[in-house]
Design a protein around this nucleic acid. Structure first.
Length: 429
RNA sequence: GUGGAUGUAACUCAGUUGGUAGAGUCCCGGAUUGUGAUUCCGGUUGUCGCGGGUUCGAGCCCCGUCAUUCACCCCA
């Protein structure tokens, strides 16, 4: 045997034992988003590199060292998308979706970042994102957060997540604050750890987010972003909190919450959990009022969030013990070419009659004992046996695999009626 | 990019100071030539991640490498 080729590091196969759960989560997300009036948009996986450099920020880790970037055959510089907002805004501008209108969009797909894989963090990962364009007022922020809260509630994850919110203020207020913070930190430079020394020039706001216990006192005494907010942002943030309280959404204001991407303004929020080890953020988002104009569109306020699908799935697997296997409902067995042929006919007739049923017809030969073993494993409630005897009599033997009711023999024509009598209603409607 | 842990059967894992590769589950056959999940009997699991080195001899010791995993960094 030659050496088997393995998957690329950090890029995972989602196996049949997991896809049920993925489908369940995806269906639920789609349902909730639709119920809030969001429309799906499907976007390319590859964009021009320039798009991400201009939106995410040239000095961020994502752009500096985590992008899968390559030149195509025409020497165009392209990148596998590391996040969704940039492409969504690009498409919105390109197709005139953002001009003088309110637009609610959602999307779902694969993203790529070249990082060391870890629990809840992979090189190819999946996000489900939602974006709202054209609303400047904090009611949109509130609605978006409520939508995310509904998703966690519907998945039964409410008790395991907490909502953190903060406001970064306007672009001007933020850069003003940044100056104050850098001044403060520079005077205490000797107390900074090596990571923070580096961040002092690249991304000083992130120092507030440091996990190093030795840094906490220094951070606690640092100038507060809240004290440097512009009046409009303050009011915006206050109104948002008011809406959230009245909607009975629990949240905590975390003044140290700083998102990693450059384009955020005013509201930022994260849903975090303790169930995932170091990767606690399962959903994150915020407002980015400047981005549309920055990419050449008419100035348009906007906001959105993204959910990390792998993290959501990991949480569900950890918190509930979700059944993940598909169950057959009926296992159909035969014992010769002629009976197999008849079995195909009967199975297809049943599929016409009951589209929801999963009918597994045995293939691969073997005696009946063997076939019954497989039938048992399939999870089916009924085994339908078409042997030579049944073929001659135009009947089917139907055995109850999960209860002690004795096996019955019914004519071919009566099989559908038998099943509608005995199977759960939702399967045979 | 940095640090720790782990790679033995399809799966979960043993493997003694270095001396012929093990168990359970699964799978297959039989007890029951047309009836499963229980029971009993029998059987197949293998480049011990890969490549070097030390040794009479390496799953075990040494070096390298790849992968997985956890954490840092960063982020969903």
């Amino acid at each position: 045997m030659t050496n088997p080729i393995q998957a690329v590091r950090g890029m995972n196969d989602i196996l049949p034992s997991e896809t049920r759960l993925w489908q369940h989560v995806e269906n639920m997300l789609q349902e909730v988003l639709h119920s809030y009036g969001y429309d799906e948009i499907r976007l390319p996986i590859v964009e021009k590199t320039e798009l991400f450099k201009r939106t995410i920020g040239e000095a961020t880790d994502i752009v500096e060292k985590e992008m899968y970037t390559f030149a195509d055959r025409n020497d165009e510089n392209l990148t596998l998308r590391p996040e969704g907002t940039a492409g969504c805004v690009r498409a919105g501008i390109e197709h005139g979706l953002l001009y003088n209108q309110v637009q609610r969009l959602w999307y779902h797909g694969s993203y790529f970042r070249y990082e060391r894989p870890q629990k809840g963090r992979y090189r190819q990962f999946h996000q489900c994102g939602a974006e709202v364009f054209g609303v400047a007022t904090p009611d949109a922020d509130a609605e978006l957060i409520l939508l995310s809260a509904r998703i966690f509630a519907k998945l039964g994850l409410g008790p395991y997540v907490t909502l953190q919110v903060n406001s970064l203020g306007s672009v001007e207020a933020r850069s003003d604050y940044r100056k104050h913070l850098v001044d403060y930190l520079t005077t205490h430079q000797t107390q900074l750890d090596t990571d923070s020394q580096r961040r002092l020039t690249t991304n000083p706001l992130r120092i507030l987010d440091s996990k190093n216990p030795a840094m906490q006192e220094l951070i606690a005494n640092a100038p507060k972003l809240t004290d440097h907010l512009d009046t409009e942002s303050k009011e915006h943030f206050a109104t948002l909190q008011h809406f959230l309280k009245n909607a009975n959404i629990d949240f905590i204001v975390n003044p140290c919450l700083v998102r990693g991407l450059d384009y955020y303004t005013k509201t930022v929020f994260e849903w975090v959990t303790n169930e995932l080890g170091a990767q606690g953020t399962v959903c994150a988002g915020g407002r980015y009022d400047g981005l549309v104009a920055q990419l050449g569109g008419k100035p348009t306020p906007a906001l959105g969030f993204a959910i990390g699908m792998e993290r959501l799935i990991l949480m569900l697997q950890q918190v509930h013990k979700a059944p993940t296997r598909a169950h057959a409902h009926i296992y159909l067995m035969t014992d010769s070419d002629a009976t197999f042929q008849k079995g195909l006919e009967i199975a297809n007739a049943l599929r016409d009659e009951f589209p929801r049923l999963c009918i597994l017809q045995h293939t691969g030969g073997g005696n009946l004992k063997n076939q019954f073993k497989k039938a048992d494993k399939s999870g089916a409630r009924f085994a339908i046996i078409i042997g030579e005897q049944e073929l001659a009599n135009q009947t089917a033997a139907i055995k109850f695999l999960r209860e002690t009711t004795p096996q019955q023999t019914v004519s071919w024509l009566e099989v559908p009626a038998f099943l509608s009598r005995h199977l759960e209603k939702h399967l045979v409607e």
